[in-house]
Amino acid sequence: MKQILKVRQLGLDRYLKAKLHAGWMMACLVLVMLLPFILGVGLLLKSEMLIRDHSLLDLIFSKEWKPLSGEFGFYPFIVSSLWVTAAALLIAGPVCLLTAIHLTQYAKKYVLRIMHPVIDILAGIPSVIYGVWGILVIVPWISNYLGPFFGKTTSGYTILAGAIVLAIMIIPFILNILIEIFRNVPDELSEASLALGATRWQTIKFVLLKKSTPGIISTFGLGISRAFGETIAVLMVVGNVAIVPDGLFQPGYPLPALIANNYGEMLSIPSYDSALMFAALILFVVVIVFNLFARALIIRTDKHN
């Protein structure tokens, strides 16, 4: 009945066209929504061979990476990834927070207007360029100055180099969101606090930051998932040695670098293909978990306010 009414209202021609277009738009939507699932299932199937032969705990916590004798311990790679990501966030976090506070609370409006495109340009620079810059500047700096300063002899290709390069890459990304978050805090809220006799800094600390805490946490969550997956720039400076790093001045071998360096090259070794897919699966799961966590926080705070 309903369809007949619709046809009468629209005319058959329009009715069919509307149906058709609604159809393919829906198909696109479904495709986009299914993509992550397809990827996840694909990775799982591909790494199934490895998982069948080894226990999951062994794979994740074993330190032995000897593909030729069939030992695949991902622990060094996972730890490298965590080190690089955590150090990058430790460097980028405070820088971003303070910059965003200054730009939104202290600076004149035109400064922010100038800074916005600058930040966008930083965000748009291809990561390989950051990598080259890392090799030319950061790596020698660590090997010649910073390493000796802390009494370490190092080639410069270290976790720290990866972290610094990575930090600089995620700064524009985090900064942009933080600025947006701080700008969304109404001026009147700061005015209310100031009118009660609070200083600017008290107002920032107790009102602005307090109001934005969930947003800041989820921004860092998104930053982590971004940093965790960043490949090429980190790969170029981090050293790529499959040992468990125990400090910033040690070389590391993060998961994305492992995949990018070896996929398509050493596939004659049995299970190697499957092992790389497993590395990808770990990466995939970690990034998705962090993303979901960050988004859940955003949604929760939206409801609160």
């Binding site: 005015e191 209310a192 606090s193 009660l196 006799g197 200083t199 008290q202 307090k210």
Partner: peptide, 29 residues
């Protein structure tokens, strides 16, 4: 500023609980 209480067009409660909204001004002094 402490000599002047401000009441805005819309209420802007501070992002804290009811008690602390009142206690805030006292604590910072």
């Amino acid at each position: 500023r402490k000599k002047m209480g401000l009441l805005a067009q819309r209420p802007y409660p501070l992002p804290m609980n009811i008690y602390n909204n009142i206690a805030y001004g006292l604590r910072i002094s």
